[in-house]
């Protein structure tokens, strides 16, 4: 395994994450070393409690390892301040959550443009990019709807639009199909595959959904926080 962080979008080195539940220590991630390459369409899979979400959160700078190090585009996350981490997440990482997590008082358009606004992108460019991304995810005409006026699939599309509108280095998607029906899940996967293929957006999923695993070109299997297999498929 190449351990030079500069060659990968994400590089995890001997990462451990230990939680304490009362007097009991729970090792959520156990000595995990992993690289994610540009253009990957990879899935972290495994049973519940295998450490998928914890690993994803640590890659996204939302959680910190107990030991080991994580690099995201040459940035050692452990060396970044809270502010620097938020800037990194804003500019280089897109998040898609299981429960969509759109801001309920914002329309689809406003949710999608939110990160661009945080970046301080000028209004005109902001509008162009947001409209383009909403078209891309198939939400043209629905931009004025609020989350409670949209279906689960439509909300997840807005979440995907929000995640990719800034052209991040990587999109971290935590169980993105868990809350939608099969047809919607397939169409969301079609969309993400298309973005991966056409726009070279790097995706890293945490999932135990067989549909996602089937589509993933790389399957990283975790068991008890430990890397069990890392399979690249054509």
């Amino acid at each position: 395994m190449n351990t030079k962080p500069g060659n990968h979008i994400v590089s995890m080195r001997q990462v451990n994450k230990i939680y304490r539940q009362g007097k009991v220590e729970v090792r959520a991630v156990n000595d995990l070393s992993l690289n994610i390459e540009k253009g990957d369409f990879a899935a972290l899979c495994g049973p519940s409690g295998s450490g998928k979400t914890t690993a994803l959160n640590m890659i996204g700078g939302l959680d910190v390892p107990s030991s080991g190090s994580i690099f995201l585009e040459n940035n050692n996350l452990a060396e970044l301040s809270r502010y620097e981490l938020s800037v990194l997440r804003r500019d280089r990482i897109g998040f898609v959550f299981q429960a969509y997590n759109l801001v309920p008082v914002m329309t689809a358009y406003e949710n999608a443009e939110f990160v661009l606004k945080l970046q301080g992108v000028p209004e005109r460019e902001c509008r162009q990019r947001t409209m383009a991304i909403l078209r891309e995810v198939g939400l043209e005409g629905l931009e004025h709807r609020r989350p409670d006026e949209m279906s689960g699939g439509q909300q997840q599309r807005v979440a995907i639009a929000r995640a990719i509108v800034t052209r991040p280095a990587i999109v971290l998607a935590d169980e993105p199909t868990a809350n939608v029906d099969s047809a919607t899940a397939e169409s969301l996967l079609d969309l993400m595959q298309l973005l991966n293929r056409e726009e070279s957006v790097t995706f890293l999923f945490s999932t135990h959904d067989p549909r996602v695993m089937d589509r993933a070109r790389r399957l990283i299997r975790l068991v008890d926080g430990h890397l069990e297999s890392d399979e690249i498929r054509q």
């Binding site: 502010y83 938020s86 997440r89 804003r90 500019d91 801001v103 939110f114 990160v115 945080l118 995640a163």
Partner: peptide
């Protein structure tokens, strides 16, 4: 979520 997607 807001902080996750980059709000400082």
């Amino acid at each position: 979520v807001m902080m996750a997607i980059g709000m400082s």
